[in-house]
């Protein structure tokens, strides 16, 4: 995972796995991104393994950003992310379709 501070935004690049094995790392990275108080681009195209914990983390982060009026953008959500978000009825809430 990587968190890159750009001029206009922050890019958070996710690895292949966003599940219990990497959840703490992802949490730390997202907190870091959150603290920059800039629009955030979530590069989630490479995620191939995801669980409910991972999705809950994204949801919590997304809601907090929304609260703080920080813009969140998804870059090419992977198929697994879309599928699990749909199963858990979070697809619309996370605005993954946009």
């Amino acid at each position: 995972m990587d968190c890159i501070l750009e001029k206009d935004n922050v890019i958070v690049k996710f690895d292949k796995h966003l599940d219990m094995t990497s959840i703490q790392d992802a949490f730390i990275m997202l907190k870091k991104a959150f603290d920059y108080n800039k629009p955030i681009l979530l590069q989630v195209n490479e995620i191939t393994r995801l669980d409910t914990a991972g999705l809950q983390l994204l949801l919590s982060f997304y809601l907090a950003a929304h609260e703080k009026k920080i813009t969140i953008q998804w870059e090419a959500p992977s198929a697994i992310l879309v599928e699990i978000a749909k199963i858990l009825n979070l697809y619309k809430l996370l605005k993954l379709s946009l």
């Binding site: 219990m20 703490q24 907190k31 959150f34 809950q56 949801l59 919590s60 809601l63 950003a65 809430l93």
Partner: peptide, 30 residues
């Protein structure tokens, strides 16, 4: 969902603020 037609309503009332989140715990209900 494989058994029939499933309608899912998510309950996030227990979900803490992001910085207070313990990502290993489950706060969601359905």
């Amino acid at each position: 969902a494989e058994l029939g037609h499933l309608t899912v309503e998510i309950d996030m009332s227990d979900l803490p603020l992001f910085p207070m989140l313990d990502p290993t715990q489950c706060y969601l209900k359905w």
